[in-house]
Design a protein around this nucleic acid. Structure first.
Lengths: 249, 249
DNA sequence: CGTGCTTTTGAAAATCATCAAGTATAGTGG
DNA sequence: CCACTATACTTGATGATTTTCAAAAGCACG
């Protein structure tokens, strides 16, 4: 395991003590579009931050002054209605880039689910960087395109799938580690870790906490999964879950 | 449900008789990133096609060999489940660019709602063009970013809004002519034209035809709208609709 | 002026939400 | 280490919005 620098005691903006060259998130992020010998330039722009669990570090509607790159931990991205109804539009983990919006304000909020580390870039500075490194702009377009595809898939889920199908889709995607902004991690795991609460899952899938809980309990009684703890799920019948997820019946 | 294979696009595949220079869609599309004196190059790549109403010109899952740019008419973009359930992920009209996906296959289908004209670009050729004109790549990233924001808004609608709120959002967006890929057209119109059927609206909003019809009828009885014909709606109380759309209650 | 399609309207059914306890789990301080 | 509290999760009963099923009305087109 690579040496990980001790986290600062104080939650505070610092230049990365270690350069981008050894960033563990780089292989998963747009930053890998920058050549090794240009990384100094990137590192000079990045401000590495620690974010405590539960902390909202992007507020929907606030002036969009920064781009962020997640280097560790997970965040939930969400939109709110005035009466508090919430839709989680995605989860951001290592390598995810946030704040692409053209608009002058953030179109969504972001809150840390776990302790996080993120790199912050000022938008004008990043703009300069992109002008100098078209390869990074290309990567950004690729990333955006992929997110668009994921967003369409999520619309299908929210608009047309049943509660069971939504939960199955969610578990399969999490297990695959390929969607939901989870970096690829080798072959699909049987164990699915859930850093988010039932409430987060409900707000992601357009359901209520109770429906999420009941559906998971039912999956368990049907031997599709095990639930060793609330934040951990074991896939027992992946085939059946995948069938459900794709809407076969 | 039977899988209907797209018939080949009726190809009066011709080079644009008129060059891109006088294209009416250009001001609304990514093509305006190309300087006037470079438009020859663009025109040389574009193949202008006519698509009949009702024809599917992009089939979900087919090899993604082309990019398309809509120059006239409207298309619906959709994803299907094996049993025929359908989610319309958006409507594409003049200036909309289709087929951004990084993947080798299309992630969605596209069917013309009206007679359309579209420009087709082969992906490798367009790739070359983008390499030569970074400004166009930038525009593409902007467009993709905006679509991402729209997609998140739609997730909020599908996951958390009531049927009334969904219809109100839809009408306000259509009237504004700013969202739903409708190019800006001056000040918001009181008259909203609906080139799509009730079934399309239902599949776009994650509802059934009946709920769409009932909700519109109720809006009418509440004096929020008039329905001179099925494909035409008059906004009578925009404020109330906007309030509904944003989830105030 | 049928014919076929879309739309509207009505009644019944179902899924999921809401309301309401009750049970784990984690974190805190004695 | 253990109670104690707060929070998250599960489970049950009830209810409501939306879907489903069914049929009539409107419209476009040959």
């Amino acid at each position: 395991m690579t040496h990980v620098r001790a986290r600062p005691v104080v939650v505070e903006a610092v230049r990365p003590a270690e350069p981008c060259a050894i960033c563990e998130a780089r292989p998963f992020s747009v930053c890998n579009a920058i050549d090794l010998h240009d990384l100094e330039r990137l590192a000079a722009l990045a401000v590495n931050l620690t974010v405590d669990a539960g902390r909202t570090f992007i507020e929907e509607g606030d002036p969009a002054e920064s781009f962020f790159n997640v280097t560790a931990g997970t965040a939930k991205l969400f939109k709110l209605l005035p009466d508090g109804r919430r839709q989680i539009t995605g989860f951001a983990s290592m390598g995810t880039f946030l704040g692409l919006a053209v608009s002058s304000t953030y179109a969504f909020g972001a809150e840390a689910l776990e302790p996080m580390r993120i790199c912050r870039f000022s938008r004008p500075k990043l703009r300069e960087l992109l002008d100098d490194f078209p390869a990074m702009e290309k990567r950004l377009l690729e990333v955006a395109s992929n997110e668009l595809v994921a967003a369409q898939e999520q619309m299908l889920l929210l608009g047309r799938k049943t509660a069971r199908e939504r939960l199955a889709s969610f578990l399969v995607a999490r297990a695959g580690c390929l969607c939901n902004n989870v970096p690829a991690c080798g072959r699909p795991a049987e164990k699915v870790m859930l850093p988010m609460t039932r409430s987060d899952i409900a707000d992601y899938l357009g359901l209520t906490i109770e429906t999420v809980s009941r559906t998971l309990t039912r999956f368990k009684s049907e031997r599709l999964i095990d639930i060793p703890s609330a934040s951990e799920i074991l896939i027992r019948d992946r085939g059946a879950l995948e069938g459900l997820a794709t809407g076969l019946r």
